[in-house]
Computed example of a mutant assay.
Amino acid sequence: MSRVGKYPVPVPAGVQVALQGRTVVAKGKLGELKLDLTDEVDVEVESNHVAVKPRGSDRRARTMWGTTRSLIQGMVTGVSTGFTKSMEITGTGYKAAVQGKDLVLNLGYSHEIRYPIPEGIKITCERPTAVKVEGSDKRKVGQVAAEIRAYRGPEPYKGKGVRYDNEVILRKEGKKK
């Protein structure tokens, strides 16, 4: 069983963490994030770390102990350094570009796909085949990257589609004569 919850979350310089009722608020140079706490855990905020403790010894309290600690760690990291997901587009004629507040994708369909960039997320395209999603909220960055990838996921024969930079595509052998 994991014991992630017992380790305190270190708070780096330039980040303020406060407890407002049952809400944890983290403020830093990249913005402000909030987390509503469940009834199974208690949080203690000190000057340079945040400690999470379960209220009981039942299974739900122990699972929320580690989960809450991980969510607070993600908030602190997000407001101090931020999160990034890089994606690569592979395929003839496949490309992406940022136009205003939209990400325009050409992925082999008869039309271009316009993806509206959500609030708090920054999308950049250094090359027409590279997309970088950045933001302070780890869940939102992952969700936006997953939605972009879902338009044309990588296929196993030629590897065409949108894939994460660290993703490995298991390739299949094609037809034989």
Rank of each mutant, 00 (worst) to 15 (best):
V104Y: 07
K175F: 09
R62S: 13
Y115K: 09
R3T: 13
E40V: 11
V76Y: 03
A146V: 00
Q99E: 15
L107S: 06
E134Q: 13
V25A: 04
D102G: 10
Y115Q: 11
G82Q: 01
S2Q: 12
A150H: 12
L103H: 10
V79F: 06
Y7Q: 08
K6Y: 11
D42N: 14
K175L: 15
N106P: 01
A96P: 03
T63V: 13
G93I: 09
V43D: 04
S47Y: 07
K95T: 07
G28N: 06
K138L: 14
V98T: 09
V50P: 01
P128V: 01
M75G: 01
G93D: 08
V144D: 03
V17S: 03
V144E: 03
G161D: 02
A26P: 01
T90C: 11
V133Y: 09
I123Q: 05
G28V: 03
R60S: 13
G91W: 06
R22H: 11
I89L: 15
I169G: 03
D102T: 14
E88N: 11
G120R: 03
G74H: 03
E112H: 06
F83D: 05
V17N: 02
V50L: 02
G100N: 12
H49G: 00
G82V: 02
E46C: 01
G5N: 04
Y157R: 08
V41K: 05
E126Y: 07
E88I: 14
G78F: 07
K29M: 08
R69P: 00
G28S: 04
G100T: 10
E155R: 11
Q20R: 15
T90W: 08
S80Q: 12
V162Q: 01
V133E: 04
T124Y: 08
T23W: 10
G135Q: 02
V98S: 09
H111W: 11
V50E: 00
L19M: 11
L35R: 07
E167G: 00
D165R: 14
R149D: 00
T63I: 15
A51N: 08
A145C: 07
A97D: 03
A51I: 09
V144G: 05
R69D: 01
D137K: 06
G93Q: 09
K132E: 04
I117H: 06
K140W: 00
N48M: 04
R114Y: 11
M87N: 03
K34R: 15
V4K: 08
A145G: 13
V50C: 01
V144L: 06
M87H: 03
L30P: 04
L30K: 11
R62V: 12
A97S: 12
R127A: 14
L37K: 09
G100K: 13
V52I: 14
Q16C: 10
T63E: 15
I121R: 01
L170N: 11
A13T: 10
